[in-house]
Design a protein around this nucleic acid. Structure first.
Lengths: 108, 108
DNA sequence: GGCCAGCGTTAGTCATCACTTACCGTAAGT
DNA sequence: ACTTACGGTAAGTGATGACTAACGCTGGCC
């Protein structure tokens, strides 16, 4: 199981999110990903390393090129993590809203 | 609509995630949240500010105390953002797997 | 009014990390 | 073997941001 914290740390950077989005849009090689971005290719390479460690992307060698693709594993990890918060958050939120409504009634 | 990037930036810090988790577990005042943590109270206060801006928590004054609660809005934002990736990621992943299988067959 | 508790804010410091430049290894073409 | 394209890595720098200490403000209590 991948640590959700690691994935969130990976997604907690704007540039890295842009790289991730480009991979998902179909970009393959590191060059293609870096083209049009305002950072250098080595920077992209380092970001890909982090994304890979978080299991957000997978890589595969093809000749001298290295092709990157999206890995659902990391996304699933955050998704599960979020869902845990989601349910409890809704319950807590509803309870708080109820309590607010009670106080509101008392005020009149 | 809350920006998903802002929420991810907020969750991209370990300490901030701890603060968020404590709020969800029922901690209310800033003191209660800070108690037992290895950072000072002002630090917690600053983290709460970021979490609030990302609409992950809400605050409400009660006397001199300030009570914090979880706000589902921010979580929903990341959730939607993730779901977008989720669907396309699965499709892309399946396609890639298919292509791999084809290549595998060709190899024999 | 005086006092205390609870928080937010500011200023300043320190560490983390994103980025670039340069370098090295590797695979394919000639 | 030479060259070229591609990409990971190391070293060094700069900027972002997390943290603490000190201060100020507000609300409740005596």
């Amino acid at each position: 199981m991948t640590n959700a914290g690691q994935v969130l740390d990976a997604l907690g950077d704007r540039t890295r999110r842009a790289v991730f989005a480009r991979v998902q849009r179909g970009a393959r090689s590191v060059q293609e990903i870096a083209d049009g971005m305002d950072v250098s290719r080595p920077a992209v390479s380092q970001h890909l390393k982090v994304l890979k460690a978080a299991r957000l992307v997978t890589d595969r060698a093809e000749g001298t090129r290295r092709l990157y693709a999206v890995d659902p594993t990391g996304i699933a990890a955050v998704r599960d993590w979020l869902d845990g918060f989601w349910d409890e958050a809704l319950v807590a939120f509803k309870a708080a809203a109820e309590q607010e409504a009670v106080k509101e009634r008392k005020r009149r």
